[in-house]
């Protein structure tokens, strides 16, 4: 299992459109991908679960990948989330 903490930088946070893009990226990997925010957690492959966390700009989240492609998933998803612009 690998994990990394990142700060959300895009203005609308992990709100529907960016969130939907992130979920689509997460689904490309076989590993289980979990996002932790404050005292809550969500499966990053589920849009509704992710939306329930209410992640906004400047929030800190921890991404946790567990599975055969965990290293690649973590690298790709942290890069993807940090490059969101919307």
């Amino acid at each position: 299992m690998v994990k990394e903490t990142i700060i959300i930088s895009n203005p609308t946070g992990l709100h529907t459109r960016p969130a939907k893009q992130v979920v689509a990226e997460a689904k490309k990997f076989e590993s289980d991908i979990t996002v932790y925010h404050q005292d809550k957690e969500a499966n990053l492959k589920s849009l509704l679960k992710l939306m329930k966390l209410g992640i906004s700009q400047n929030h800190s989240i921890e991404l946790c990948c567990d599975g055969p492609d965990e290293e690649e998933a973590l690298k790709h998803l942290t890069g993807f989330i940090l490059s969101l612009e919307g």
Partner: peptide, 17 residues
């Protein structure tokens, strides 16, 4: 944006889940 994200979206997601 703050209201948009933190309260509204997560409440609606709760219902839809």
């Amino acid at each position: 944006v703050k209201e948009h994200n933190e309260s509204a979206v997560s409440q609606i997601a709760d219902l839809c889940d």
